Simulated assay, not measured.
Amino acid sequence: MTTLYHCNASAICSKKNIDKETVIRFRKWCSDQKLPHLSEEQLLLFLSYTTNMEQAQNTILKYFQCKSKTPELFTKLDLDAEDIQEARTVYDIAVIPERTPDNRVVACGKLRNTSYSRFHLDQLIKLCCMALECFLYDGPVDGVIVVVDMKGIGLLHLTKLRLNALQKFFYFIQECVPFKIEEVHVLNTVNFIDKVIAILKPFLGKELYDVIKFYPNGLNSEDIFGSLPKSCLPKDYTGTLSTLSVLAEETYQKMSKLNLVYAQLEEQIKCYKEIKNT
């Protein structure tokens, strides 16, 4: 079984200067670790973000270990599923289609429905994980920039946070994926931001914590996004693209076309668990 990706293996090899012998050695190592059969594009996603073979090996192994041990977050990733359909009405999560000139991806998120009773952390995390696979589908990235708008978040939303789910999610995005989050911009920070930080800090490694910047309500967006091209931002954040809500809908439409990819990725995790148990 191979996983469908839009990226082209030969193009990745050429751009990232990865030779066939490296891919062959990596595939053999994955086989020795009892990982499921992986497409060449999948192998290259993990090889291309680091020049260190050992780091690529550690990352892909953690990727499968984490997913196999966390079925509540990494199974039933189907945009037509009831919980994901519900999440779409509550959160705007957009993967900006235009990458920066240095091949970085911008991902933006905010509440669409601000009622705390509609806020469910597991749904939000599953939607975020689907978005991660969505931009990797188009090929390796050289960094990720995250924009989080806290507008509409209140103290009651904090009561819906589950520490176990947060720990697993932040472990996954810091240790198990073939990219690095280089910048995190948190907009419209609330007056209880210290409480939010206190909850999240135990799960944030120093590398991620150091790139998070907080901006109070009313700060000039030009001061925040001055280094980013406007072609990579929604128009509600000084960009030239559509609004975040519209871009989120476009992202969800793309996700719906990737249901086969999500199913194949889940099948790989299932195969990994079966192989490890034999």
Rank of each mutant, 00 (worst) to 15 (best):
I181K: 04
L111D: 07
C271N: 13
N164S: 14
L111G: 04
Y252F: 12
S48V: 11
V95A: 04
Y5R: 08
M150P: 01
P216M: 09
L155V: 13
E40F: 05
F74G: 09
A81L: 01
Q268L: 14
L127C: 06
F119S: 06
M53A: 06
D210N: 10
T238L: 03
K67S: 01
L163C: 06
F179L: 08
T278C: 14
S31I: 03
T278D: 14
H157C: 00
A56R: 08
E54I: 02
H185F: 07
G139C: 09
K235Y: 02
L35R: 06
L35M: 10
I153V: 08
L35P: 03
D138Y: 01
A165R: 11
E72W: 03
L35T: 08
Q253N: 15
G143N: 10
V186M: 13
L241N: 04
I224P: 01
L43H: 06
S221Q: 12
C13M: 15
L132P: 02
I197K: 15
S117C: 01
E183I: 01
L200R: 13
N191G: 09
K69L: 11
S10R: 11
K20C: 05
I153H: 00
Y116F: 12
L124T: 02
I275C: 09
N113F: 07
N220S: 14
N259Q: 09
L258W: 08
L79K: 04
L124C: 09
K270A: 11
V147Q: 10
L132Q: 13
K276Q: 15
I84P: 02
L200H: 12
A263L: 13
I193N: 01
E82D: 12
C108Q: 04
A263D: 13
T243Q: 05
I181P: 02
C128A: 10
V190Y: 03
D210Q: 07
F64G: 05
C66Y: 03
L73A: 11
T89D: 09
L208N: 00
A131T: 07
Q85S: 08
I60Y: 11
K126V: 00
I197G: 12
Y49H: 15
L163N: 06
C13V: 03
